[in-house]
Design a protein around this nucleic acid. Structure first.
Lengths: 155, 155
DNA sequence: TCTGAAATTCATTCCTT
DNA sequence: AAGGAATGAATTTCAGA
C-alpha cells in the first residue's frame, strides 16, 4: 500500500462510481495500472464493497434512535442476542462494547409509533435483556463518509 | 417511488457498482428506463452518493471507540463544538441526541495510544465539554449495509 | 413510460518499456 | 510496475410506440 493506493481509497470513498479513467487521472496514473490496483485492493479485502447511500427520510426511515442494551453476559445469551439483532432490519448498526452498556444499536424506523412497536415486540422481549435505554437522535452531526486515509510518506 | 424504485435502491445499496444493464435485468426493466430512474433518484437526493467501503484494519483504523460527550447546552457552544467535530477526521460518525448524553461519536484510530492523544488533545480540550465517556468497541455486530427498503404495495 | 438502435465512452486484455 | 493500443462492453442519447 503506497500513497497511490491511499489516494485511490480516498477517491472511491468519496465517489464509488468514479470511472476507472477519471480515477486514474486523479491519482496520476494511466488506466491500466489504476485498474490493476483497484482489483488488487478488492481482492485483498481492503475495499469491501460499494454501496449507494440513501436518504433515510426518502425511504420512510427518518426516525433514528440509539439504543443501549444490557444483556446477561454468558456466551450462549450473547450469541443468540447478537444473531437476533442481525435479523431485525430496522437495526442498521450494532456494536458490542467493553464495559457498560454492553451493546449499542442504531435503529432507523418511520416514526415514534414504529419504534414503540419495535421496542416492545422485538427488543425488550429478547432473551437475557436486562435493560434497554433509548435515545432519540436529534441531528446527524457528521455523516459517515468513510475512513480517513492518511497520505503516508512511505510504506 | 414505486416498487421498482425501491428494488433499485435495494440493489444499489447492496452493490453500488452494478452496471446499469445488470441492474435493469434484476429489477425487470430494460436499460434505458432503468438509467432514467437511477438518475431521477440521484437528482431527487434519494441516492445521496456512492461510496467504497474500506476495511478499517487495512488502513490503520482498527481501534474504534464510542464516545459520549456532555456539552454545555447553549447555542453558541453547541454550534462551535459540532463544527469542531466535523474538523476531526478520526471522528467518523456523530449524533446530537435528546436527553443525555447530548452527543455520541464513533471514532476510528490506529490504536490505544492514538486514541489517548486524540482524547486529551482534541476532545477534552473543546470548549464547553463537561464530560467525556469512552467505550471501546469489542466487535462490530452488524455492519452498516444501508437502510431497509420495504417492498411497498403501492405508491 | 417503455423499447430498441446508434453513437460514444469505458473496461479490459495484451504487449512493450 | 507503468504506459499504450486494440477489442469488446457498457453507457447514454434519441427516435418511435
Amino acid at each position: 500500500m503506497d500513497r497511490i493506493d491511499r489516494a485511490i481509497l480516498r477517491e472511491l470513498q468519496e465517489d464509488g462510481r468514479l470511472t476507472n479513467q477519471e480515477l486514474a487521472q486523479r491519482v496520476g496514473l494511466s488506466a491500466s495500472p489504476c485498474m490493476r490496483r483497484v482489483r488488487q485492493l478488492e481482492r485483498d479485502g481492503v475495499i469491501r464493497g460499494y454501496r449507494a447511500v440513501v436518504d433515510p427520510e426518502a425511504v420512510g426511515r427518518g426516525f433514528e434512535v440509539l439504543v443501549s442494551i444490557e444483556v446477561r453476559r454468558d456466551r450462549a445469551t450473547v450469541e443468540a442476542f447478537e444473531a437476533a439483532l442481525r435479523d431485525i432490519p430496522d437495526v442498521v448498526e450494532a456494536y458490542r462494547l467493553f464495559g457498560s452498556p454492553g451493546c449499542l444499536l442504531r435503529i432507523a424506523v418511520a416514526d415514534l409509533a414504529a419504534y414503540e412497536r419495535l421496542w416492545i415486540e422485538r427488543l425488550t422481549s429478547l432473551d437475557g435483556v436486562a435493560e434497554v435505554n433509548s435515545q432519540i437522535i436529534m441531528k446527524r452531526v457528521k455523516e459517515p463518509r468513510g475512513l480517513p486515509v492518511d497520505p503516508g510518506g512511505r510504506a
